[in-house]
Design a binder for these strands. Structure first.
Lengths: 315, 315
DNA sequence: CTGTTAGCGCCTTCAG
DNA sequence: CTGAAGGCGCTAACAG
């Protein structure tokens, strides 16, 4: 008992006894069981969970770095979960995090069904979404200007004279997949260009499939003169295809990426700071953790990270 | 009690009752407190710590992904710590992990002083090093063939006729910084080429400084005809410099990276799988966790990941 | 098949 | 200033 008190620096223990405790602790190699302590104190160990779909994608690793940085500033650590684009795995991770009684969770959701997040939230754990707004859920979220960025890039291609602009995208069921396509469609519509389904492909999740999809389009009898790719995987896949075919059609893509400015063909990207996405999400989360409020009373917050169109010239 | 049993799938509970429990659990949003469970079972929370220097570098994010994957297979989660190349922060992270009683720690150490790891190990937590061997420490480690890879790349440049080959590297105090330089030196020595300190620069940790260092070399009166860069940051920095100057000197670098094969100048890289590094490290760690042995009795294990020289042609 | 007892390591509360 | 009692949420071992 006295040791317990000494270790947490209780003023009721005399300084000399504290010193004796310290030396004994060091000699015996004792260290307090934080898990038991936290159980008794009814609090969790200063841990936040982070669920991303694919850490190998620089977008997510930069986001993770941002979350880690802010969490660290608040004295918290981050538990990492990689869902690998698998909804079941995401659900499992969130459930695991909830039963570990983490202090909060940041999720970049795979799909559009967020019921499993609801369950976690019900247990009193704050949840913040990144890159996608909550569905049937009252939760804070940090998002990108998906629509605006896509619209701007497509609009720019149109202004440059293109009328046959292909779209390479993520699955329509995802928020970003849908919003970025919507931005593309809106820009076409404003210019009076009808949507041509033959040059729209929306199922690519990696570079290889994006490259294949682009090659198929290039091989059509009436190929596009430009491509808008909805994320960095699609942009890089499209670049590989275009470059491989020695084609010189224009390319624009959502997401900036390393070496984008050093490629052999000009490229336009919708740029933003993925780290900022992570930082803002972690800030919202830490705020919820330190100022817990009844869900009903406080409205869910939304933060939108702006995007910027950047043109990389010929290197 | 019955719920407790049902949840852990005890055969003594009837299937139909289990079903009732499941629905009730779902309805109430209950989830078992893993901390309390672990406390009772006398085991720790199934968490391993991972300390990396910079998650924004794809090398580390791929490594982290590998660690996460293997840890997951073993039913463990990963706590992430980004040291940001700061030794003090690394020490702090390791100490924090130790007092949280994690089941194990994977560290990519910043410096060459590993005393703080010793302290963690003393508390009975297995430690595995990645990318660098332990110093004054009995611990498992997974490493790259730093020397061999660097030797091979430099040797290849020499065989191509180069005699003035610059070296761009990490700080000499780090293991990789030292080993990769040693490989470079050995290849030069075998070819009877004296080391020219004017074209050796060993302090670059990021792309910007690497680019600057390369530019300085290119501006020398007797510039190198080739560059060997000791990691992906230096290679990309060197590429930017060379391309920016419209120079066409040869470039080789340790680490493969995305789009390396799509650049406008040919490039040679020392390729290996960073994910494999993480996976093997996590495997060693999980083995230590499941088969705990007195330190003294079991020798520290070493795994070396092979490298392969790859030439990317002109795109 | 289900309930009771006891205790994991710690801390709060109340006596000494 | 220090100790004893009780309990955080869970489960192994033993009844019933």
């Amino acid at each position: 008992m006295t040791v317990s008190r000494a270790l947490r620096d209780d003023p009721r223990v005399s300084p000399e006894k504290k010193a004796r405790v310290r030396t004994a602790v060091k000699a015996l190699g004792y260290s307090r069981n934080e898990a038991a302590r936290n159980l008794r104190l009814g609090r969790s160990g200063g841990l936040v969970g982070l669920v991303v779909t694919n850490l190998a994608n620089p977008f997510y690793s930069q986001l993770a770095l941002g979350v880690e940085a802010v969490a660290s500033e608040h004295g918290m650590r981050v538990i990492l979960g990689n869902s690998g684009e698998d909804v079941a795995r995401e659900r499992q991770l969130v459930h695991d995090f909830a039963s570990r009684r983490l202090d909060g969770i940041v999720v970049v959701p795979v799909g559009s069904n967020h019921r499993h997040l609801n369950a976690a939230q019900q247990t009193g754990i704050p949840v913040v979404l990144a890159a996608s707004p909550p569905v049937k859920l009252l939760a804070d979220a940090v998002m990108l200007d998906d629509f605006g960025g896509s619209w701007e890039a497509t609009h720019h291609l149109i202004e440059a004279g293109h009328r046959k602009i292909a779209f390479l995208g993520l699955q329509p069921s995802t928020w970003t997949g849908s919003e970025r396509f919507r931005g593309y469609c809106a820009a076409l519509e404003e210019a009076g260009i009808p949507l041509d389904e033959r040059i729209v492909s929306r199922q690519q999740r990696d570079v290889a499939t994006a490259e294949r999809a682009t090659l198929e389009m290039l091989d059509q009898e009436d190929p596009p003169t430009a491509v808008f790719a909805a994320n960095n995987r699609n942009t890089i896949g499209a670049y590989r295809a275009i470059r491989g075919r020695r084609s010189n059609i224009a390319l624009a893509g959502f997401d900036d990426f390393e070496l984008a400015d050093m490629l052999a063909l000009p490229l336009m990207v919708v740029k933003y700071d993925p780290g900022e996405l992570g930082r803002r999400a972690a800030e919202l989360l830490c705020d919820r953790i330190t100022n817990p409020q009844p869900q009903a009373e406080s409205a869910a917050r939304r933060i939108v990270i702006p995007t910027k169109l950047v043109e990389y010239g010929l290197q």
